[in-house]
Design a protein around this nucleic acid. Structure first.
Lengths: 80, 80
DNA sequence: TTGAATGTAGTCTATAAAGACTACAATATT
DNA sequence: AATATTGTAGTCTTTATAGACTACATTCAA
């Protein structure tokens, strides 16, 4: 897969996560307490440094009280 | 995380993937050729046996020509 | 009925996430 | 000024996915 596309995708995902977290005024450590994902890992996911697994995304969504699909709700081009 | 919820989530995701794949009349091997995901892995993901990573989901979505979020577009309850 | 295609479950190695921590500089609070 | 919180980047071990194959029974088509 094109690395730029992959990076962009993970970056967009991270942005979405950050948006929802900030909207709820949660710090990484606070969100970490609401779900079983370590605070430092959340940081890395928000920065697009980690290619998280589906269940991790689910955990984060649960902690935020949103449907997981909302974390993927961003524009994305598929041109290779 | 509650294992039943996790299993249900992966199962729903698999169902979505199967739906889109069948809608395009693609076999596992055909879809595998459209994205860089092995045919046997696609089978396991559709059956909810694998907790795939985000970029794998992205690859599959690209192969199907859909936005990744569509693979998460199903009802899901968050009760623990 | 012969042969191709399909779904499925394995194998194996390499790589990366999960999970639980630590450290620390910068920012915010008291 | 002193303290607590926050974001970030590391460490380490365990575990599971990625990726590339193989095998095989079943289904479908020539």
């Amino acid at each position: 897969m094109d690395k730029n596309i992959a990076d962009k995708f993970l970056s967009e995902l991270g942005n979405k996560l950050a948006t929802f977290r900030k909207r709820k005024n949660l710090s990484y450590r606070q969100l970490a307490q609401l779900c079983s994902v370590d605070h430092s890992k959340i940081s890395k996911i928000e920065k697009g440094q980690i290619n998280a697994q589906m269940l991790t995304i689910l955990e984060l969504a649960k902690g935020l009280g949103i449907h997981p699909k909302k974390l993927l709700d961003f524009e994305f081009d598929f041109e290779d």
